[in-house]
Write a protein that binds this DNA or RNA. Structure first.
Length: 229
DNA sequence: CCAGACGTTGTT
DNA sequence: GTCTGG
DNA sequence: CCAGACGTTGTT
DNA sequence: GTCTGG
């Protein structure tokens, strides 16, 4: 799955990589947790420019009564996303890219012990998760936008760490994935099946780092020895 | 018909 | 909002 | 995903 | 042990 991730990139890098004319407001972060605000890249209407938007991580279906269960929808299985009531409308009309520079997976050592790993691309230090976004109107008419990260079976290279992983959307597929006019859902599902396994690098990280409280100074500076070279 | 769920992961 | 279970 | 709470009453 | 909030 993908329950924490990093986005150690500047607004300039994000804008450059995803073809945004307006730079997102962002400071590099290495421990992004569910419910927090993150930048997504999307196209909201036909022929509109790509835009970024800060949305909460954890999708709230438009018919939700309250926002209490958003944090449980931080991931959506790509195998079933087209049919699930919570995701299918977003899959049809509200696909997005979620910029990331790495993600964490926890290897289960035994019942009580988990070892976190930081996983990143071998090349392409800034990449994108395939995601969906949604818009929820609260009883008080407050607009709340949220997103979820699509998952799939783990690649050969990292499945010894964990069974599932987020889907990485390759740059050559950004445009089609984001197209709100894309009529063929079969095509959308095809975009979720990579033709080539990606190159990965990973390293153990300390529990202390990953347990760092996410409130307070929300932009934690990554310790030098926690980064890839 | 109404009431209640609608999700993922991991673990048993 | 829409589907499932009773 | 992890961390932290997990309860009531009345009073400030 | 399980749920909620970040």
């Amino acid at each position: 799955m993908c329950g924490r991730f990093t986005l150690n990139a500047t607004p300039e890098q994000i804008a450059e990589t995803f073809g945004l004319s307006i730079r997102p407001e962002w400071s590099p972060r290495y421990n992004i947790a569910p419910t927090q605000l993150i930048p997504i890249v999307r196209v909201t209407t036909a022929n509109a420019a790509r835009e970024w938007q800060m949305v909460h991580w954890g999708l709230l279906p438009s018919w939700s009564r309250d926002r209490t269960r958003a944090a449980s929808l931080i991931n959506a299985r790509s195998e079933t996303v087209a049919e699930k009531p919570s995701f299918r409308e977003a899959f049809r009309h509200r696909r997005c890219l979620i910029p990331a520079s790495g993600f964490y997976e926890w290897e289960t050592i035994d019942k009580k012990t988990k070892q976190p790993y930081l996983i990143a691309r071998g090349e392409q230090s800034l990449f994108a998760f395939a995601g969906l976004w949604e818009r929820w109107i609260s009883p008080e008419q407050e607009v709340v936008e949220t997103c979820t990260i699509l998952t799939t079976a783990a690649d050969e290279a990292i499945k010894h760490l964990h069974e599932r992983m987020p889907i990485i959307m390759e740059p050559e597929h950004y445009e089609e994935w984001l197209d709100p006019q894309l009529e063929s859902m079969a095509r959308a599902e095809e975009l979720l099946r990579p033709t080539q396994p990606a190159e990965w690098k990973w390293r153990q990280v300390s529990t202390a780092v990953n347990n760092a409280r996410t409130e307070g100074p929300i932009c934690l500076e990554p310790p030098r020895d926690q980064l890839f070279q």
